[in-house]
């Protein structure tokens, strides 16, 4: 029974990871790739780590707190990485995909520049 649960969790995790990687190749611009990286890859790894934790807890009867710490850490750091990388990419001037429909941040930055010049 526990083996089935662990197997399902690990398979789900592997599937999420591979789909995240395909997303990284397929999306057209940096920001779309960040979507794939911060969501699918993170959830995949969290599924795998939960599977490992359950395996050691139920089969080997060992409680490994470090794995739980890892889950917490990955959860906390994924949005920070997405935020930092997208911000730096935008500031350096990486273009949005040419089929993007709106860009409020660009407008706001232009407005601020105009105010600073006056």
């Amino acid at each position: 029974m526990t083996e089935i649960v662990v197997s399902i969790l690990i398979l789900l995790g592997g599937a999420f990871s591979i789909l995240g990687s395909i997303g990284i190749v397929r999306f057209p611009d940096v920001y779309g790739r960040l979507h794939a990286a911060t969501k699918s890859a993170t959830l995949g790894v969290i599924c795998i780590i939960i599977g490992t934790f359950l395996y050691f807890l139920l089969v080997q009867e060992l409680f490994i707190g470090k794995l739980l710490l890892t889950i917490l850490f990955v959860f906390m750091t994924a949005p920070v990485v997405g935020f930092m990388v997208s911000k730096s990419a935008y500031n350096v001037g990486v273009k949005l995909w040419d089929q993007s429909i709106q860009d409020d941040l660009g407008k706001a930055i232009k407005k601020a520049e105009k105010k600073a010049r006056q």
Binding site: S17, G20, S21, I24, A37, A41, V45, I49
Partner: peptide
């Protein structure tokens, strides 16, 4: 982005 994902996958 790709390197970060490689790191996460290694975990």
């Amino acid at each position: 982005v790709a390197l970060d994902t490689i790191g996460i996958n290694l975990i």
